[in-house]
Amino acid sequence: MTIKCKAKMKDGAVEVKALMKHAMETGLRKDKKTGEPIPAHFISEIVCNHNGSEIFRCNMGPAISKNPYLAFMVSGPQAGDSLQIASVDNMGETDSGETVVK
């Protein structure tokens, strides 16, 4: 549970902001000492669920900055509802976060 997220009602829709901790290695960088390429390691998918149904999905490539930040507007959830955000990276590591709509 290390995804930080916030959700707020704005003009009838919900604005969700999420911040994840991840190195987001592109696979293009080389280790400065050994010259070996550093393998790609990045968050590939993020899903936001509301009442058990998916309301937002994001497929990321390695071109997303380190410690990814994501902001999006969704309609549907109301103030007081809880939203779950989950991520998985290209090595299968998962993370999640939860917030209540303000």
Partner: peptide, 19 residues
Amino acid sequence: AVTFEVANPSRTTVGTRIK
């Protein structure tokens, strides 16, 4: 860089930080 799958009836806003 990134794809978003949203289901919005009207205005769609998405934001992130890219390399």
